[in-house]
């Protein structure tokens, strides 16, 4: 049995857990804990170690999706989780511009960990105050070559599209 791994990363509350839940065939093995910090209490719980989802491809191949913890103090887990990844997805909460800077920092950190393909998912595009994808690209200072995809992490088709785009990027890179 061969296993491959993709990592879903991004700032706190950017929708990583929801993203994995939308496509995982197993109940996501989530390590959610109540949030102790008042500053980060925009939701009740957060992922402290990792989310873990699975998509069985066939008898010989399984795709694992790993979500990184969003809070800064667990960033020591990032490098551990990025080990062996085929590619990674950076989730950005399109409605919280105060997190864009952090998203860019996370993106740069993961790029440094491994020269694997990646895409950026502009999540929560269904929110009223969500930034347009093009504006987000400017805010994140992303090169035009980097795929920036609109996303609603709770919508399976939207998540599928992000995963497919990442896989296409991986395929393209193999051809180069």
């Amino acid at each position: 049995m061969q296993t491959v791994k993709m990592v879903v990363t991004g700032p706190f509350n950017s929708g990583k857990t929801a993203f994995i839940c939308s496509v995982s065939e197993i109940d996501v093995v989530s390590t959610e804990r109540k949030i102790s910090s008042e500053a980060e209490r925009v939701k009740e719980t957060t992922t402290v170690a990792m989310d873990f989802g699975r998509i069985t491809v066939d008898d010989d191949l399984v795709l694992y999706l790993f979500g990184t913890p969003g809070q800064k103090r667990f960033d020591f887990m990032w490098e551990i989780l990025s080990e062996g990844m085929l590619g990674f997805i950076v989730m950005v909460d399109s409605a919280r511009p105060e997190t864009f800077r952090e998203a860019r920092g996370i993106l740069q950190t993961f790029r440094a960990y491994a020269p694997t393909p990646y895409v950026v998912a502009a999540n929560k595009q269904d929110a009223d105050d969500a930034w347009e994808v093009d504006d987000l690209r400017i805010a994140l200072k992303l090169d035009e070559k980097v795929k920036m995809l609109p996303c609603v992490a709770t919508d399976r088709d939207s998540v599928k599209n992000v995963l497919l785009e990442l896989l296409y990027s991986i395929l393209e890179e193999m051809k180069e």
Binding site: V4, I55, L164, L167, Y168, I170, M174
Partner: peptide, 15 residues
């Protein structure tokens, strides 16, 4: 490697 990624693509499409 290419075959592996193509299998992944087919699977994700079918989700």
């Amino acid at each position: 490697q290419t075959s592996l990624v193509n299998r992944l693509i087919d699977r994700v499409r079918s989700l």
